[in-house]
Simulated scan of single mutants.
Amino acid sequence: MAIDPPTPPPLDTMRTVTEPVIDERTTGGPGGHRDRRGWLVSLFAVLLAGLLAGHRAVPNVHGLGSLVDSVTPLLGLGVPPLAVAALLRRSRRALAVVLLPAVVWAALYGGAWLPPATGAGPAAIRVASQNLRSGNPDPVATVDAVAAAGADLIGLQEIDDDRVDAALRQRYPHRAAVSTVALWSRWPIRDSADVDTGLGWTRALRAVVAAPGGDLVVYVVHLGSARAGHTATRDETLAALASTVRADPAPRLVVLGDLNTATTDRVFAPLTRLLRDAQADAGQGFGFTWPAELPVTRPDHVLYRGLTPTAAGVLHTPDSDHRAVTAGFRW
């Protein structure tokens, strides 16, 4: 009896599938490429948030920590590009993560853009500080712009031209000076003395101004310079100034000057424990002053105690590489 051979199964049932399953999310396909880039945006957003929140943890080796502290307010500029990148990649997850550095920045610095809590009432004392820039081709134009703002007291740094005193003498008949810093006042200066900040040459003074509301102690200061990798001199002079102010018994005191660092710098802490910052209390925005044409930091300050600030701001003056800082106070 003949037995028919078994009928072979159809060819399509014999085919063994050996090709790997392709998942576009991991192979660079349209969805995968977008997802991978979304992770990259998220990573940068988390790193930015961490740097904003923990910038004081950056080691201050060769001034690196101070530099990061000083530019931290500018790190908020990294949020918009990250948000745009998340939108371009159509990654909702990345866009949500970008909110993290935005929230941290707003918590740290958003208050600087709100209307100041102080500022009620007219100013009884108006002050200004300006680094003239050594070699300024027209210092008279610079100081005229500062005087036009209506200051009662003007502190100047990097003075190296006799024309400055001649330009201010009629409007500000009282003057105290040492080296390249000076104070001009509408009111009598009862006393003045050099202040040693450990710089090696005197570049700071203390004056007692007989203001209408009572005596006011005014410091005009130019601290040591700071360069990338070289901040030791600046740090030492700042510590010396803080020590001098700490020992000063004056109940009403103002510091005007170029301190060569921002209030966000960790080395500024000894001064912020003793004095208030007029820009932070009565100004709006960061009040950047250097470099004058496109300022990215604020080395110039009006610090105070024993007074109530009514206003604070920044003035773009001609021919200097710094903008001037101004403030108003009441007793």
Rank of each mutant, 00 (worst) to 15 (best):
A102S: 14
T118N: 00
D215W: 07
V79N: 04
V296Y: 14
G28M: 15
A193Q: 14
P188V: 12
L274A: 03
R36Q: 15
L132H: 03
D4A: 11
V220P: 00
D196H: 11
F44C: 13
L183E: 04
H301F: 06
A166N: 10
L156F: 14
W105H: 14
L216S: 00
A177W: 08
E293T: 09
D4W: 09
S66D: 10
P73M: 09
L156A: 07
I125G: 01
D191R: 15
G200E: 04
V178C: 12
R36D: 13
L274W: 07
T7F: 05
L99R: 07
A311M: 12
A327P: 02
G257R: 05
P139S: 04
W113C: 09
R126C: 01
A128Q: 12
A324N: 01
G328F: 03
V146A: 07
V104G: 00
H222M: 09
T308H: 02
P188E: 11
A147V: 10
G283A: 08
A2H: 15
V302Q: 11
I125K: 06
R93C: 06
L303G: 02
L205E: 07
F44H: 14
P139Y: 00
L67R: 08
G32L: 06
G198M: 05
R234Y: 01
V255A: 03
D248Q: 03
S225H: 12
G50Y: 14
R15D: 11
L271D: 05
T263W: 04
A312P: 02
H62C: 11
G214H: 09
G76N: 10
H62M: 07
T118E: 05
P309N: 06
T180G: 05
A232I: 13
W187I: 06
R171T: 10
V220F: 14
L205V: 08
V245H: 05
L253P: 00
R171N: 12
A49S: 12
T18C: 04
T263H: 10
L87P: 02
P137E: 13
P116S: 08
P5T: 11
G214T: 06
T308L: 01
R305P: 00
P5Q: 15
R186H: 11
D194R: 15
A53F: 11
V140T: 15
E236I: 03
V98D: 10
T261G: 07
A167G: 06
L51A: 10
D161A: 08
Y109H: 15
G29V: 07
R126H: 10
L205K: 08
T18G: 01
A166D: 14
G28R: 15
V245E: 03
V164F: 05
S42K: 11
P270C: 06
A107W: 12
A102I: 04
R34V: 01
L108D: 15
D152F: 03
D281K: 07
A86N: 02
L99I: 11
D194G: 12
L11H: 10
V140C: 06
T16Q: 14
E24P: 03
V164I: 09
V267F: 03
H322P: 00
I159N: 04
A123Y: 08
G150W: 00
